[in-house]
Every structure is written in structure tokens, then in C-alpha cells.
Design a protein around this nucleic acid. Structure first.
Lengths: 379, 379
DNA sequence: ATGAAAGCGCTAACAT
DNA sequence: ATGTTAGCGCTTTCAT
């Protein structure tokens, strides 16, 4: 009679023991039937499956995780989900994670290093690996983390930690060449967060390519990498900006265009603007934003693919504490190709503007320190 | 000497046993010290904390979950993370979840009911509750789920399941009144997904308020609720749309404006457009989009708050299978206030346009078939 | 207030 | 191929 209790399939309460009893086998056999099909007789396996089915049995991932030390979850840590940039990355990550049977634990750190640490603290013991996109932590902190669990970093190069980054150099080069072809001779770089690796990378690349192309460059910033920041940048630029500007990212570029418009400066007639990332909105605004398209979705996917590889790599040697580090070409950043998407925000340099034929070849960005754009002096 | 093994704080491997031994207490005491402070002598508690600290001990959430049946995770299921609408909701949810010590398990269902089911299947056993935003499942399927775990539904009313929705009726009313004040007498509703509860709600509300305000209304659609859909809607509208339109959501409205612009119809001079949601981009495009601002962030936060309440409610009676349903005012949808944000996409009705004084109270938008779609028949 | 011991549901040697 | 037996790390009666 007690058997009757089984008759009511209470979904979350059926265990392998229930199935085992009902199928007339040992619990371990049921376990095998689910965790490693093939290691059990096809016939019994089938029977077990049937019984499990009718009993409404589902494996309990938690219990499984407790003994295997593998949870099937990976943490995705981002500074701001609402940032379309990360949204795309998340999508890419989610897609390949799901396909591999992994679940994503999402953590938004609100652009705060403190929250990021806390989030990691919480998530770490629950996940098999970590995807760090736009981390605010220091390189050494990241290395620390990667010593405990497999980690892949996005959009940033950290020594000794697998990274996935867009080809910033080529992207900036493409943008600069495009601008040069349109007759622009002086480009202003609108900088993003000071601490951003990508920002440094882009600015450096710009200076290099400028040298090569005989362009002059200036720089203002840093600004927060959002629309707000762009508006502020426009203010800082004053009424006579250079004829061309490359912004750290699209949000900044969009804000810049708005800010410029508000002060009567027209884009692209008066100044050409190029962004970076090619977020969704780049195509929505007027004029459309010319921008360096980063393979957002692909970045997420690629990073996840690597992470999963690392995870299955470490899976074997559980007991070796220090062995967490994987043979993978650690430290070797995978760089993904980018492409320039030309839209309406860039145009032939207007002849009406004064052409600063004078001026040195390469303008010292020291002018940047003048809060309210003294850098204008260079023009 | 064996003791020395403890000296190397291998972060993920320290257990309460290690701490207990080192602190000279029983494992159960260590457990108490962490899970229910107060039930242990303040002094010993302190000592335990210290030892734990220096040993680098962290409670293992999985192990804890296995015995308590509470994981501290809630699943957030959304159709599309990249959709700015959901991005905001996610943020709101994440914020309050984190504050309560909960972690979010994110699942993007790619607008697919099938994937949604699969995701739930996977997540269910791992989470304490579920947040369903923009679910593609049937009401009954949702009720089924909510019988197993606490569930809160967003942007949709499902009988017997706690819901959080924006005040669609008031929102539409506000939009219609605004349009009426501007002199518009005929409003076209650009419909979203056929299966969408919100869409039905909005259309119905529009008809009601139209009756009251002596406005005529028409409707075209359904369209996919994205920019693409809006562009298609523009095509379907032909060259002589009504002077005012309300779209199911902002993306549709944005696409519509683009599509209209492409065919030489100017917004707001020729036609006024109102959206719904007030997503980020609504303020970026030109002209700015007049729209009904839904409290996106608040929705996520509110829903989460309710879910957490339900969770702590069910926490007590673990053994009562059928008792999962909470006393909460189940079925009672919480409706959140909205407000109209007026931007540049709406304007006084242009006198130049032919005023269709003739025509029935409700004009059949048959003109739509002029475009490419044949689906026009159903409207 | 603290200790001892029995699980939570599953996996993993080790047998057979 | 399948059964036995220990755990995984923590919580939780039940004693003391």
C-alpha cells in the first residue's frame, strides 16, 4: 500500500531510488542510465527511461553537481545589461552555452568593481567557468580569479588569461583611412573611460595610423562611454571642432552628434563622426552612424566556446588544485575581425572650413588636460 | 604534519569540517554559525568566523541547496535580451534580486515557445522561483509551471498566476487624448504579435477611448514587434496613411517612422506617431518618439519583489506538495502606472491633408493591401 | 549552546 | 552489465 505514494507523480520529488525500485534495478543503474547511456544494457536502459517517464522523474542538477563538482552553469559578468553592446555579447554567449547544455548565470555589476567582486564571490562556487565582459577589476585580480576557475576575458587583454578582443587596431585604421579619403586632415579622438584597455588601444592605434597617413590627431576626454558622455564631449569641443572625430564607442558618438546638433553644428556637413561597435541604435539615428562594426555576437560565442573547452579540459583532473590553468594558448588573445560600416555621419570635408595648413604633424595630446577643450588650440 | 595541508587555503576546497577541526568545535556548530547566527554563542561564533576567514572558507551553495531545497536563484525567462524593453526589466529584477541575496539565472528563449519550455525544464529544478517576461507559452502551460514553483508573469495577465503589468488602458487613453488634442480625428493602430496579451489589451483600450472621444480608429497588422515590422507596416500603410498612428511598441513605431520617411511621408508633419514603452532609443531617433512610458525597471523590480515574497512564503511548508500556491492575491494582476512622454513625433494635425469626413465610424484599412501583404484580408 | 548522526539526490569506485 | 557502498558539503533533528 505504501507503494501507492508513488502513484502521485510529484514532479520535484521523484528520485532515482523511486525509479530503481519500480524498475527493479539498483539506483546506480538508474544513475548510469541517465549520466552515461551506453554503460547500461539497452533493454534495461529503455525500461528505466519508461519508468522514469511515467513517474515524472527528472535528474536533480544540484545533487549531481555536488558529487561531480560540475554544475553545467557558467557565469557571465557584465557592467551593464542595458548597454546594447553587452546585450549582443550576452546573446552570443547564451546561444553557444545553451547548445552545449550549459546555463548562464547573469550578473550585472552596474559598472562597479565592488559589485563585480561581490557577484563573483557569490557565483564562483556555483559555476564551472566565468566569462568576464568589460571587467572593472584589475589585471591581477582577474588573474587571481582565473586561478580558481576557468576564465575568459572579453574586450581586454590580460596576460596569462585567455582573451577575446575585436581588432581595435584595424578598426581604427579603417576609420582613419575612410576619413582621410574624405579629405579630412585632422581627427579628434573622443576618449572613453580612462581605465579602459580598449580605449588605450584605440587611441594608440589612431596615433600610429595618423603618423602613417600624415593626419593630425587630437584627443579629448575621458568621458563616460554613454550618450550623456557624448553630449558632454560636444560641449567640450566648443563651436569649432575639427572636421572629423572618432569616438571611443557608438554611444559616445551618438551623444556627440546630438550635442553638436544642439549647438548648431551639423553632422556630417560640418563634422564627420565615426563610432565603434555598431550597436543597434547606430542604424536608427539620423544621420546613420558610420562605425567600426565589432562582431559582438561572435565575440560572445567565441569566448564561450573557449571557456567550454577549458572547462572540459579541467574536468579530468579534479584533485590537482594548481592545475586549473589549461594548456590553451593562455594569454594569447584571440582577435576577431571588424569592418567599417559607412553610413550618413561621415562626408567629404567641407571646403568652407578653415584648413589649418599650419600645425605640427602630430599634435601632443597633452592639450587634453584642459578640461574645456584647449585642445582646440591645435587646430 | 597532515595538518599542514590546511595551511594552503585552496579556496574552493575548505569545508565546515576543516573549520570545525581548527576551531575546536563540531561541524554542526560551524554550520549554525553561518546559517543561523544567534543560535550560537557570540564568542565561539566570532572564533569560527575568524578561523573560517583565515582558512578561506566559503559556504558551498550547492551543498546547502541540496539539504534546504532552496538555491537562492531565480530564473528570468525572456524572449530576447537584446530587446531594450527586456534589458530594462532584467536590470530591475537583477537589482532587487541581488539586494535580497538572490542570483539570477537568465534564459533567452529567442522568441520560441519550444526553447522556452526547454529552458524551464532545465532551470526549474535549480531555482526557487521563476520570472516569466513575455512568455510565449499558453496560459494553461504557465499555470502548470506555477503549480510546481512560484511564478510571476510580466506584461500579461494569466488567471490564477501573480502578474505585473503596465497600465495599458490608461497609457493608450493618454496617447489618444494627446492625439485628439492635436486635432487628429482618425487613429490607426499598428498591431504587434497576434498572440500578445498586451496587444489585444491596447487595441481594445483604443477602441473604447475612441468611442468616448469620438475618434475613428483603424488597425493594421499583426507585425513582428521590431523595427523591421514597423518598416513593413509603413509599406502596408501606403502613401496616404491616417494623420495619426499609435503603434504596439516603440520598435514598431521607430520602424514605421523610417519606413514612412523612405516613402516621402514626413513625421510629424504628415503623420503623428506614438509608441509604447519608452525604450532608450525613443529619445535617440529624430524626431524623438512620443510614447507611453512603461515603468520597465519598476516592473522588473516589482515582479521580483513579489516572487521573493512568494518564495519565502512557501519556504516553510516543504513537505506539502500541493501547497505551493501562495496565499498572495493570486490572479490579481498588479498594474503599474504609466505616463505619456511627448517628443517630436506628434504634432498638430496638418490642415493640408484631406480630412476623411466621410467613411464609417471605423474605417477599414483596406488600403493596406496595396503593399505586399495579403494578410490584409483579416482586418 | 553544542555535539552526534542521519540524510538531501546523485555519482563513483569497487565488487560481482 | 549491474549491485554495493561510500561519500560530495551542508543542514537538521535529537541528545546532552
Amino acid at each position: 500500500m505504501l507503494e501507492h505514494q508513488e502513484e502521485a507523480p510529484v514532479p520535484g520529488k521523484v528520485t532515482i531510488y523511486d525509479v530503481a525500485r519500480r524498475a527493479g534495478v539498483a539506483p546506480s543503474t538508474v544513475s548510469r542510465a541517465f549520466s552515461r547511456p551506453g554503460r547500461v544494457n539497452a533493454a534495461t536502459a529503455e525500461r528505466i527511461r519508461r519508468v522514469a517517464e511515467e513517474l515524472g522523474y527528472r535528474v536533480n542538477p544540484l545533487a549531481r553537481a555536488l558529487s561531480t563538482a560540475r554544475t553545467g552553469m557558467i557565469a557571465l559578468v557584465v557592467p551593464d545589461i542595458a548597454n546594447p553592446f553587452y546585450a549582443e555579447v550576452i546573446l552570443g554567449a547564451q546561444a553557444t552555452a545553451t547548445r552545449a547544455g550549459f546555463t548562464i548565470l547573469l550578473a550585472d555589476t552596474q559598472e562597479s568593481g565592488r559589485i563585480e567582486r561581490a557577484a563573483l564571490e557569490r557565483a564562483m562556487p556555483t559555476v564551472d567557468g566565468i566569462l568576464l565582459a568589460g571587467s572593472r577589476m584589475s589585471d591581477s585580480a582577474i588573474r587571481m580569479v582565473s586561478k580558481q576557475k576557468p576564465v575568459v576575458v572579453l574586450n581586454r587583454a590580460v596576460v596569462d588569461v585567455p582573451c577575446v578582443v575585436p581588432d581595435n587596431a584595424r578598426g581604427i585604421r579603417g576609420a582613419a583611412e575612410h576619413l582621410a579619403e574624405l579629405g579630412h586632415q585632422h581627427i579628434t579622438y573622443v576618449a572613453g573611460p580612462e581605465a579602459s584597455w580598449a580605449d588605450g588601444m584605440r587611441w594608440r592605434s589612431l596615433r600610429e595610423v595618423a603618423l602613417e597617413l600624415h593626419l593630425r590627431v587630437g584627443r579629448i576626454g575621458p568621458f563616460t562611454p554613454d550618450v550623456q558622455g557624448g553630449v558632454r564631449a560636444a560641449e567640450e569641443m566648443g563651436t569649432s571642432p575639427t572636421s572629423a572625430v572618432i569616438a571611443y564607442n557608438d554611444q559616445l558618438a551618438i551623444g556627440l552628434i546630438r550635442g553638436l546638433a544642439a549647438r548648431g553644428v551639423r553632422v556630417p556637413q560640418d563634422v564627420s563622426v565615426v563610432g565603434f561597435d555598431n550597436i543597434f541604435a547606430a542604424d536608427l539615428i539620423t544621420p546613420g552612424l558610420t562605425t567600426v562594426a565589432a562582431p559582438l555576437h561572435t565575440e560572445g560565442a567565441t569566448a564561450t566556446k573557449h571557456l567550454l573547452a577549458m572547462i572540459s579540459g579541467t574536468a579530468s583532473r579534479r584533485s590537482e588544485p594548481g592545475a586549473q590553468r589549461v594548456p590553451e594558448q593562455a594569454g594569447q588573445a584571440v582577435v576577431l575581425p571588424v569592418r567599417l560600416v559607412v553610413r550618413g555621419s561621415t562626408a567629404q570635408r567641407s571646403r568652407k572650413r578653415t584648413s589649418p595648413a599650419s600645425g605640427t604633424t602630430r599634435v601632443s595630446p597633452s592639450a587634453a588636460k584642459a578640461a574645456t577643450s584647449t585642445s582646440a588650440g591645435s587646430r
